[in-house]
């Protein structure tokens, strides 16, 4: 039986928590003061992409508890109702977990199309929640805008996730 050194174990732990850490950083990106002058609804739903990707390809590395925590942090920092993002991400996880076979080993465009459905559904869910809880119809353009930019930006983020997956996470 091979002995496992402390460095190896540390290395293993770090690789395991990488998806969670990356997603946590993505949760903070929308509030970072980049001075981009972009109207804010245009910022894509980055954590949704991360939850989508990791649930499909390595659900063991981004468990529901981590998804919940990251969603709460994003809600607390970003403003708005606390728990909405957490709920959206958890539902995404729950809905996708059983559908993984549909996507594994299939071409990229299928994952992209799947994400498009998820992005639209997530925007719809959040819109409905806010409308229901405040009993008023908020402007819909931002929900549409965020879903659109999310879908457009998905390949870029997916490329980044795939690289992280192959370089850091593949061995655990």
């Amino acid at each position: 039986m091979a002995t496992v050194s402390l460095a190896d174990r540390l290395d293993h732990r770090l690789r395991c928590i990488t998806p969670g850490l990356v997603t946590l950083i993505l949760a903070l990106v929308p509030v970072l003061p980049f001075g981009w002058n972009v109207p804010h609804p245009a910022v894509p739903a980055l954590t949704l992409m991360a939850a989508y990707y990791w649930t499909l390809y390595r659900p063991d590395l981004l468990p529901p508890a981590a998804i919940f925590g990251i969603g709460i942090v994003q809600d607390l920092v970003g403003g708005g109702l606390v728990g909405v993002t957490a709920l959206t991400l958890l539902i995404t996880y729950g809905a996708l977990l059983g559908q993984r076979k549909l996507f594994l080993g299939k071409p990229f465009w299928l994952a992209w199309a799947g994400f498009a459905v998820v992005a639209v559904a997530a925007a719809g869910l959040q819109y409905a929640l806010v409308a229901l809880l405040y009993w008023r119809l908020p402007a819909a353009d931002q929900a549409i805008m965020q879903a659109a930019t999310s879908i457009l930006a998905f390949p870029l983020l997916a490329w980044f996730f795939i690289r992280t997956h192959r370089r850091v996470v593949a061995r655990v």
Partner: peptide, 13 residues
């Protein structure tokens, strides 16, 4: 100074 715009899609803060 303005530190950050709200990142949430359903809040203007």
């Amino acid at each position: 100074t303005v530190m950050a715009d709200s990142g949430a899609a359903f809040a203007r803060q």
